[in-house]
């Protein structure tokens, strides 16, 4: 995923494999990509051969989504995550707003 985020445009699976450490088998890379696609993290361009993959959102967008859930005021947050704080302090919320504003 980090490789996809680093690359400028969409990538073919073989290009991704070359970037990845440990030289994984191409089938492994494709399996992981299909799984990520099923979860909505990666989109696949089927028009061309080989298929081209790109990240559905930027890393920052995902981080903003994650932090929104952790710090934001989602009503079921407390039931979903066991957090160190019962409530969010104002400085955290301000920080989050800043992050979301930039994102």
């Amino acid at each position: 995923m980090d490789v996809l985020w680093r690359s400028d445009g969409p990538c073919a699976a073989t290009e991704l494999r070359d970037e990845l450490a440990g030289d994984p088998a191409i089938t492994t890379v494709l399996t992981v990509l299909s799984r990520l696609e099923a979860k909505g993290f990666v989109t696949r361009d089927r028009a061309k051969r080989p298929h081209l993959f790109r990240a559905a959102m930027t890393r920052d967008d995902y981080m903003a989504e994650l932090m929104h859930e952790v710090l934001g005021s989602a009503p079921d947050r407390e039931a979903v995550l066991a957090r160190f704080l019962g409530r969010v302090s104002k400085s955290e919320t301000d920080h989050l707003r800043k992050l979301l504003g930039q994102g």
């Binding site: 981080m63 994650l66 710090l71 995550l81 957090r83 920080h95």
Partner: peptide
Amino acid sequence: LIENEAPVAYCLP
């Protein structure tokens, strides 16, 4: 570990 400035700790059951 997540890269974020906000001091955050939680457990995902």
